[in-house]
Amino acid sequence: MTDPVLAVRGLCKRFGALAASRDISFDLRQGEIHALIGPNGAGKSTLIAQLAGGLKPDAGQVILNGDDVTALDTAARARRGLARTFQVSDLAGEDTVLQNAVLGALGATGRRPRLFGNALGPGALRGRAHAALERTGLGDVAAQRVADLSHGQRRLLEIAVALTLSPRVFVMDEPMAGLDGAGALRLRAMLAGLKAEAPILLVEHDMDAVFALADRISVLVEGRIIATGTVDEVRVDVDVRRAYLGDAP
């Protein structure tokens, strides 16, 4: 088996008396979608923040492509190939769709942005940004301001920006949230195709999507992973049924 692209080892995080992450360990392997599910308040967002670098764990390690990145900040982890999308779209709202995508392309160069030249002029940046927008079906709205986009389009733009980074791993926080049926289906198809490029850690509440997409599922309850396995394994896991699905036949 190949080394995991992203590995978490013994991650712990406390906020006062509340243990938000308790000794969490799991892997994300090449080519897979690994879904992270759990009821509200289970500690999913806290875990994502620790993976992306926004929150320092009290103990444990985050390993990206074999390197311990626990001490690195968000920007440094992004430069090492971790692309994150947000539960609530966090884009430059006054800017156009293209400008947001070019920002991603700019980050992907790994260099300090130049003080001269035209950011939106023809060239590698624009090409890379356009390619990502075309893939997500946003090519036609490239000139629109983000503030004027629909909710669904913003969700797609989050993913387009992540795509411009050509990441080694995707960490997606509820990408389906707020999408209508057709939009969710389109996104589902896109993610299924995307995992061949880089594995996806998918935090999602849409259980249909999770069961359709995930190669493996980890179930987080009260800051602890109580089960990890394939869809079928998790579906029949007694602990999961009791703790998460709420019935114990």
Partner: peptide, 28 residues
């Protein structure tokens, strides 16, 4: 004028709107 249209200006302007957005694409 040159700064505003440059890649630097685009990044700075994005960081003004959302510092997290800039960090997420690897910019400080």
């Amino acid at each position: 004028w040159q700064l505003a249209r440059s890649p630097f200006g685009l990044a700075l302007n994005a960081a003004r709107q959302s510092a997290m957005r800039a960090r997420t694409v690897g910019l400080s």
